[in-house]
């Protein structure tokens, strides 16, 4: 749930797979936060260059956009681990334990399927940009495969965390929907 400061992570127990995935997701979260901080710094630098030094600011806007996109995509697994993606748990809450369990499995499998689709075509898109040597149409001319890389990485890691969450429910380390 999207509480503010309560970071209730999904449980890992002592399962090495779950712990490894949790560690990777946490690392991804650090990278995501780092990119947001970098975006703050670059924007402030841009304002100083433009307003104080009256200089040109050619690359900053683009860099900041790509950093925020990358922060979002790479941050996905970490937020999933913290159960930070909002959901509507009205029906799961009202279900008895057994159906709730199956509901959790069903939503997990659906989530995994769609994220796998995003990963597959995200990778394809990234590869296309790499293969064709696409650049952005600005003076800076970023090679687009660099920002597009966030698609396969972000969705790949999210897929991993979703699988870990499913495994945790299946082996009983975690409760369906995290509900007690």
């Amino acid at each position: 749930m999207a509480g503010h400061s309560s970071a209730v992570a999904s449980h890992t127990g002592n399962n090495p797979f779950l712990r490894a995935v949790a560690a990777i997701s946490t690392l991804a979260g650090w990278c995501s936060a780092g990119m947001i901080v970098a975006a703050v710094a670059i924007t402030c630098q841009m304002i100083v260059v433009r307003f104080v030094l009256n200089g040109s600011t050619v690359w900053q806007t683009e860099a900041v956009i790509y950093l925020v996109i990358a922060a979002t995509l790479v941050g996905l697994p970490y937020v999933q681990r913290l159960r930070g993606h909002v959901n509507v748990d009205l029906i799961p809450l009202s279900l008895p334990a057994k159906p709730r369990f199956f509901m959790a499995i069903l939503t997990s499998v659906l989530s995994i399927a769609i994220v796998a689709v995003m990963l597959f075509y995200g990778y394809e898109y990234w590869h296309f940009a790499w293969d064709r040597g696409w650049r952005s149409d600005t003076v800076w001319g970023v090679r687009l495969w660099i920002p597009y890389l966030a698609l396969p990485i972000g969705f790949g890691l999210l897929l991993l965390q979703l699988i870990a969450d499913l495994v945790a429910v299946l082996i009983g380390v975690d409760k369906p929907f995290g509900l007690e």
């Binding site: 433009r50 009256n54 200089g55 040109s56 600011t57 050619v58 900053q60 806007t61 683009e62 600005t138 003076v139």
Partner: peptide, 15 residues
């Protein structure tokens, strides 16, 4: 145009 205007001494702001 950005390149030309920069050559003319303008400061380029992209938005």
């Amino acid at each position: 145009f950005e390149q030309m205007l920069a050559g003319a001494g303008a400061s380029i702001a992209s938005m």
